[in-house]
Amino acid sequence: PQECLLLEPGLNEIMANSLDYNERLWAWESWRSEVGKQLRPLYEEYVVLKNEMARANHYEDYGDYWRGDYEVNGVDGYDYSRGQLIEDVEHTFEEIKPLYEHLHAYVRAKLMNAYPSYISPIGCLPAHLLGDMWGRFWTNLYSLTVPFGQKPNIDVTDAMVDQAWDAQRIFKEAEKFFVSVGLPNMTQGFWENSMLTDPGNVQKAVCHPTAWDLGKGDFRILMCTKVTMDDFLTAHHEMGHIQYDMAYAAQPFLLRNGANEGFHEAVGEIMSLSAATPKHLKSIGLLSPDFQEDNETEINFLLKQALTIVGTLPFTYMLEKWRWMVFKGEIPKDQWMKKWWEMKREIVGVVEPVPHDETYCDPASLFHVSNDYSFIRYYTRTLYQFQFQEALCQAAKHEGPLHKCDISNSTEAGQKLFNMLRLGKSEPWTLALENVVGAKNMNVRPLLNYFEPLFTWLKDQNKNSFVGWSTDWSPYADQSIKVRISLKSALGDKAYEWNDNEMYLFRSSVAY
């Protein structure tokens, strides 16, 4: 590609939709070469300064400071330590791993069909083939991996386009969902002041979706909304933040926050679980009234959910574990990228498509890292959202599997949720969690119950496949010279610098 592309739109479109291996590689590498390399010296300084700040406030390091958001002291029976968070994340991840490994094996087999000769049947997945710029969410792999393609499509993007949905309609439908469970409408100022579409040439905007509580009843969302099912669900997520903000607005200023950061992320995700169900999509006209649910549509639905929800958990866990180790000084600065990709291979089963030396800073190419967000919130929120969903479905008197529950129109479920939201940070999160779900610790069981039918199906699908991955295989081993030459021509001086062995191999191949 010759034109100058922004991340959004532009590069993200390539990473969402392109099936051209080399075009995807160009976009993936260009973003890291342009952005990651510029941020490397800044990120090194950032780590030093943030650690100084944390230690001045009596924390061991900046990662310890972040984990302090979960700490509860002096509340008998509800205490929770920063170290306990690490333990809980690690042991819940071990419980999730078998499901993830089977999802990984299934996706690898489907990617082998889409990119023959580029995928190893026992290796890691190349990082640039996973549906977005970071491989964070695998949602866009659904069209390549759908188990029963002859069934009606449960990705309702086409239906939204056919019905001329726009950003306003998407957010109005999200608002209807919250109102149906007894939560309030958005304010008039929300509709007047939010930026729900890309302003285009009028001004440059950071398009990463964010929710804003500017105080004095001024709530806004910034999002360059596209007419897709993914953005339909994202709208519910962002509006969930606003509902939380509005619910605790009466609290004293210092207590106007989520019980912990994971709670804030979980609220909209609960609504997304219901909004994505075929039952709900039928009720708002995005699935045909004669759409029939059966075992095959159930597996299609659960796989689509797993690509988004299960596929991202190792990504989140590994990223934050790397940062915690960096802040603690356990990874020397001259080994940041080496350790990043070692951990990516070992924990996530994902491999870099071309080698990256220590001039890169791949983590900082992600919005949340370069903008100083702690990231473990996206792991804890996933466990909380299924715990909350299970409890709210019980309040809504849902009968049947958890993945079929739609809590819309249940004011009982809405009241149970609101009673927790309005507390803000005035009560320990362990107590707030217990008030809703009857337990005071994160628990992976509801998530595993939700995906149980899919897990059973995946194990059957993978019975003749290798489950797990070898960390030795690299996608650039066989194609390295071709890849390096093409990237050198595209990126010039910003391309990865060849070492002596690679230059010798190149000259030998040319001479041959």
Rank of each mutant, 00 (worst) to 15 (best):
Y373D: 09
H241M: 04
L214P: 09
S374H: 01
Q305F: 02
D230K: 06
A250P: 05
L214H: 02
D245V: 01
H208N: 09
M229H: 01
F253M: 11
H208Q: 10
H368C: 03
Q188M: 03
F219W: 12
F219H: 10
F301A: 05
L233T: 09
E269G: 02
T139K: 09
F367P: 07
N140S: 05
Y378M: 09
H264T: 06
D245G: 10
G189S: 14
H208M: 05
S272K: 07
I309S: 06
M246A: 11
F219N: 11
R220L: 12
L214M: 03
E265K: 10
V206M: 04
F301V: 04
H264Q: 08
Q251F: 14
F367R: 07
G189F: 14
S374M: 03
F301G: 07
R136K: 11
Q188G: 04
K216V: 15
H368N: 08
L214C: 02
K216M: 14
T139S: 05
F253N: 11
T308R: 03
A250E: 08
S374E: 04
F253K: 11
M246L: 12
R136S: 05
I309Y: 02
S272R: 08
F137S: 08
F375S: 07
H237W: 07
H264C: 08
W212T: 13
D372R: 02
R381N: 04
M246N: 12
G189Y: 14
T187W: 12
D230R: 04
Q188V: 06
R220H: 12
M246S: 11
W212M: 12
D213C: 10
R381S: 06
H368S: 05
E269F: 08
F253Q: 13
D230I: 02
Q251K: 12
N140P: 05
T210G: 07
Q188I: 02
H208G: 10
E265F: 04
R381E: 05
A249G: 08
G189A: 15
D230F: 02
T187C: 04
S374P: 09
N257F: 05
E192F: 11
M246Y: 12
Q251S: 11
G215A: 01
N193M: 11
H237Y: 10
G217C: 15
W212P: 13
N153G: 05
D230G: 05
F137I: 09
D245I: 00
F137K: 06
N193Q: 00
K216E: 15
H368E: 08
H264W: 10
F219I: 13
H264D: 06
Q251D: 12
Q251I: 12
R136T: 06
F137T: 09
K216C: 15
G189R: 15
D372T: 03
T210C: 08
Q305K: 08
G215S: 01
G217A: 15
E265Y: 02
M229S: 04
F301E: 04
G217V: 15
T210F: 08
N153P: 06
A249H: 13
F137Y: 07
M246F: 11
F375E: 08
N140I: 01
H241W: 08
I309C: 02
R220V: 13
A250T: 10
H368Q: 08
E261N: 05
E269C: 06
Q188Y: 06
D218E: 14
V206I: 09
K216Y: 15
Q251C: 04
R256A: 01
N153A: 07
T234F: 08
N257E: 03
S272Y: 04
F301D: 05
V206D: 10
F367W: 06
K216Q: 15
H241P: 12
K216G: 15
T187P: 00
R377Y: 09
P252D: 00
E192A: 08
E265D: 08
T210L: 09
W212I: 12
L233N: 06
T139Y: 05
F367M: 02
P252S: 06
G217E: 14
N140Q: 03
T139F: 04
R220Y: 13
N140D: 04
Y378H: 09
R381Y: 05
G215W: 15
T308F: 03
Q188L: 10
Y373Q: 07
A249W: 15
N140T: 08
Q251L: 13
L214D: 14
R220S: 13
E269I: 08
D372Y: 06
D230A: 05
F219P: 14
H208F: 00
W212H: 13
S374D: 02
F375G: 06
H241V: 07
S374N: 04
T234C: 06
F367S: 08
T210N: 09
E269P: 05
T210H: 09
S272N: 03
N153C: 07
N257Y: 02
D218S: 15
W212Y: 09
K304R: 06
D213V: 13
Y378T: 05
N193D: 14
F367E: 08
R136E: 06
R220C: 11
R256L: 08
K304G: 07
H241N: 07
H368T: 06
E265T: 04
M246T: 08
H208E: 08
F375H: 07
R136W: 07
D245S: 02
M246V: 06
N140K: 04
F301M: 06
S272D: 04
D372A: 02
A249T: 12
A249Q: 13
G189L: 14
Q305L: 01
P209M: 12
F253D: 13
T210A: 06
N257M: 05
H208Y: 09
T234E: 07
P252H: 07
D245M: 09
L233G: 09
N140R: 03
D230M: 08
S374A: 07
S374C: 03
L233P: 11
Q305N: 06
E269V: 06
A250Y: 01
T187S: 01
T234I: 08
F219T: 13
E261R: 05
T308I: 07
L233F: 07
T210E: 10
H264E: 06
H241F: 03
F253A: 14
Q188D: 09
H208A: 03
F137C: 07
G189C: 15
R256I: 06
T234W: 04
Q305E: 04
M229F: 04
Y373F: 07
N193E: 09
E192M: 09
H237P: 11
F301W: 03
T210Q: 09
